[in-house]
Structure formats: structure tokens, C-alpha cells
Design a protein around this nucleic acid. Structure first.
Lengths: 139, 139
DNA sequence: TGCCTTCCTGCAAGTTTTCGCATTAAGGAT
DNA sequence: ATCCTTAATGCGAAAACTTGCAGGAAGGCA
């Protein structure tokens, strides 16, 4: 979950966005909030780092980070969750009943994506898929 | 998009929910709104059917329908979209650039899901997946 | 360093979605 | 058909999220 902050901020800058103290704080908060963090968790961490930082700025910063690919947004049970973009995309199985999550083997998903890419002439660009199901113990 | 209303309402009842005129109107509106309908489209159709129907009732009805499986909710670009549950689940490829959507061949996805099911002892229960990518003409 | 342009932020207002509570009505039982 | 229990609705308020705008700061350039 930690991030090389300089590198990330350079990417921001390279994408034509300004590097501000607020954006740095939001990015730190996303890191601190861990994986699959819903907005309220991020807001909580932000307010620790800088209580004067306005919530609308947090929403706008997240939109910028998702736009530039620094942060990945996924949907978990109808809720948006955020996390720092890893070098490797990763995907999950989530149990509808108990909510537990399993991280999928990369080979399985990438062969599926490759198949889609060749069948449909699509360049698949999916960082973080959550597939619903029912786990063994809940079945 | 049409639905056998009686059948659907029986299912509601069987699940322990009451069948009300408001819920019938919301279900009709979901049908009328077509596939991948965002909430505002559903609200629009609802208000045509019954202008006095409160928006909070629409939200609550949709939650009940999703809960009972009468309606499928999916995420499209961070927005919730709804549609009447078909007998067959179906999945899409969506182009990040132009927004066009392709419906995936069922065989491709089901073999992927079967593989996941056997590898992880999960019962996959996914009605409506949207996979992002970039289509041929936008690449 | 200091200026200048333009983007970003905070604030306040607006919109969307959720929630609590009193009233109404569904549907089972008599 | 009527009563009774309790879930569902509508309303108002609150929470969550977005947007417009004026002031402030980032960062390019001299």
C-alpha cells in the first residue's frame, strides 16, 4: 500500500495536472486507507492529515487520480472503492453471503482477457474486477 | 424487455415481500426504461406511470428487486444501471473511449466462470459483468 | 526572483440518495 | 367481508455528492 510519492506526483504533473498539497494529502490518505477503501475511510484519513481539507476537494482529487490511473476505482456491492494502482492489476472473487474476498490467480484472468481481446479485437483494460459468487463454506 | 408481470409479482410475494401498486409501477418502469437504465431514466418512467410515487419509494423498491433477483444491477462507469433480470445472464465489453458496448458470447464467459468455480470452490453468481477496454476503432 | 496565466481550492448552494417516523394498506386469519 | 398485524409508503430532514464562482496558489517564463 505504500507508494513512492515522488514518482506518483511526477506522473500527475506529466499528465498536465498541478501538484498541490491537497492532492498529496489525498494520495497519502488513499495509501493509508488500504485496499478496497470506500470514500468514508479515505475522508477519515484525509481529515487526520489535514482537517481543513474540504470534502469536495477530496472527491475532485480522486476523480483526477482515477483519470490519470494513479488510483484504481472498483465497485464492491454497489459502492465505489479506491486503492493505489499497483504495478499488477488484480481481480477478486467476493462471496455474496459472508463478504469474504479471494484474490484471483493472474494467469486465469489474463488468459480470459486475452481470449476476449482476440475474439472481439478489444484491448482489455481492466485493473480490478470483482466477481460475485458464493464461497465454499457459505454454499 | 417485457416481463410477465404476474410471474414476477408471485416471486416477490414468495420472497416474503408485499405486492403493492408502487412496486408494480417501478417494475413496469424498469421494463420501459430498457437495458442498462440509470436511475434517472427509471425515475422518469415512474413519474409517467404515477407522478405521486415518491422517489424514496423508487430507491427502496429497486433495492428489494435487486435483493430478490427480479432486477439486475450493474455498474457502468461508476454509475449504477438496472435492468429486468433475463433468464440468461449476459456480459459486456465496454469501450472506455467511445462508450460502445458489445454483448459477449455466453460460451466464453461461462467457461471462464466454470474454471473459477472449480479452482476456487466458488459458486459463481454473476449476472451482468461489464469489462472495460478499448475497441478496435478507438485503439 | 518576480510576474502572469490559468488551474485548483474552499465555500455555499444545488442535486441526489438515504433515513426516521407517523400513517396507510397488504394479506393472513377469523 | 372484516379485523389485525406489520410491512410499505410518503413526507421531511439529513447525509452524500456535485457544481459554480471568486479568491489563491502552481508553475512556466523572463
Amino acid at each position: 500500500m505504500s507508494h513512492n510519492q515522488l514518482n506518483y506526483l511526477e506522473e500527475l504533473h506529466a499528465a498536465g495536472y498541478r501538484v498541490t498539497s491537497q492532492r498529496q494529502a489525498v494520495l497519502d490518505a488513499v495509501c493509508a486507507a488500504g485496499s478496497h477503501a470506500p470514500i468514508e475511510k479515505i475522508l477519515l484519513h484525509v481529515s487526520k492529515l489535514d482537517p481543513s481539507l474540504n470534502a469536495s476537494t477530496v472527491y475532485r482529487s480522486l476523480a483526477v487520480f482515477v483519470e490519470t490511473g494513479l488510483v484504481v476505482m472498483a465497485m464492491d456491492q454497489g459502492r465505489k472503492v479506491y486503492e493505489i494502482a499497483n504495478t499488477q492489476p488484480h481481480h477478486h472473487l467476493r462471496c455474496r453471503v459472508c463478504g469474504s474476498m479471494v484474490t484471483l490467480n493472474a494467469a486465469t484472468t489474463s488468459s480470459f482477457f486475452e481470449q476476449l481481446a482476440s475474439s472481439y479485437a478489444y484491448k482489455i483494460d481492466m485493473d480490478h474486477l470483482v466477481i460475485d459468487g458464493i464461497c465454499k463454506s457459505c454454499q
